[in-house]
């Protein structure tokens, strides 16, 4: 009996299983347990949440394997971890640890300003951030099994995630209106392989799941992203920087499952305490933005 592991179908398959769910950033095994009990579909194991990375500065790197392993031991749901853009050795280390998904993330300091990781060469799936369709399709060409909006991580401000999700959806709709011979020029304009551009034009969606991330802080934010077409939601600082993380975590899980039911949304949004304080993205300097990392 021939057994195949690490196929693209298995990688995208795991991404499909996470749809309709919430992936939560955690920095300790205790937080991971809280996330799991609240109904998270996966956790992202980190040393610092994006809000703290933003505040403290310095070079942000892959988390200490010790922390990641402790989190993997603490929960039964899939565990993700982040590597720097282009840092394929950090990815090799995470693959060796056996994490379930790698996030090649702009939240960490990039290790390569020209090349992302060749993700086809790994047996575990990758998720990458994107601000527009061209970026998303380039990452898919490199082997990403899931795309998420970049948003602006660590701000608690959903405006950039909304911008990126709307733009990607709009660019997909525009591709669908093109005549077949125009798709070659579209591929050039998008900076993405023709075959993937053609697939998107024919199917009207990305060939891998499309999730939302970056600045989601409340159940309403999460449901907004779902109504805009996200298939699941990453919540970074929004849970453990709120005043009552357990409650916030459960409420966001409920809001993503019932994103189209305002009665549920109204009920789960009541009395949650304070959401994370947040940052006005328009007041940030260009050089403080995380979303411009990657290309």
């Amino acid at each position: 009996m021939e057994i195949l592991r690490g196929t693209f179908r298995l990688k995208v398959g795991l991404a499909e299983m996470l749809k309709g769910g919430v992936i939560m950033d955690v920095t300790t095994p205790e937080q991971a347990k809280i996330a799991e009990e609240a109904g998270a579909v996966a956790v992202m194991a980190l040393e610092r949440v994006p809000a703290d990375i933003r505040k403290e500065g310095g070079v942000a790197r892959m988390a200490d394997p010790e922390i990641i392993l402790k989190i993997m031991e603490a929960v039964t749901i899939p565990v993700m971890a982040k590597v720097r853009i282009g840092h394929f050795v950090e990815a090799q280390i995470l693959e060796q640890l056996g994490v379930d998904f790698i996030d090649e993330s702009e939240v960490l300091t990039p290790a390569d300003e020209e090349n992302h990781i060749d993700k086809h060469g790994f047996s575990i799936p990758f998720v990458c951030g994107a601000r527009n369709l061209g970026e998303a399709l380039r990452r898919i060409a490199e082997g990403a099994a899931m795309i998420r909006t970049k948003g602006e991580a660590g701000t608690g401000n959903v405006v950039e995630a909304v911008r990126h999700m709307r733009l990607i959806q709009k660019e997909i709709r525009e591709l669908q209106t093109r005549r077949p011979e125009e798709l070659y020029a579209e591929a050039k304009r998008l900076g993405a392989p023709y075959e993937i551009v053609k697939w998107v034009a024919e199917h009207g969606r990305l060939p891998v799941p499309n999730f939302a991330a970056g600045g989601i802080a409340t159940p309403a934010d999460a449901a907004l992203m779902m109504q805009l077409g996200a298939e699941a939601v990453f919540v970074g600082s929004g849970i453990f920087k709120s005043s009552d993380p357990e409650r916030m975590a459960r409420a966001i899980v409920d809001a993503v499952a019932y994103y189209d039911d305002p009665a549920v949304l109204a009920e789960v949004s009541r009395g949650l305490g304070e959401a994370m304080r947040g940052v006005d993205v328009s007041k940030l300097d260009e050089k403080e933005l995380l979303q411009v990392r990657g290309w």
Partner: peptide, 15 residues
Amino acid sequence: SRNAYGRQRESFEAD
């Protein structure tokens, strides 16, 4: 038995 084959690394295709 849940997750009986292991983590994602051990996910597989077979006839």
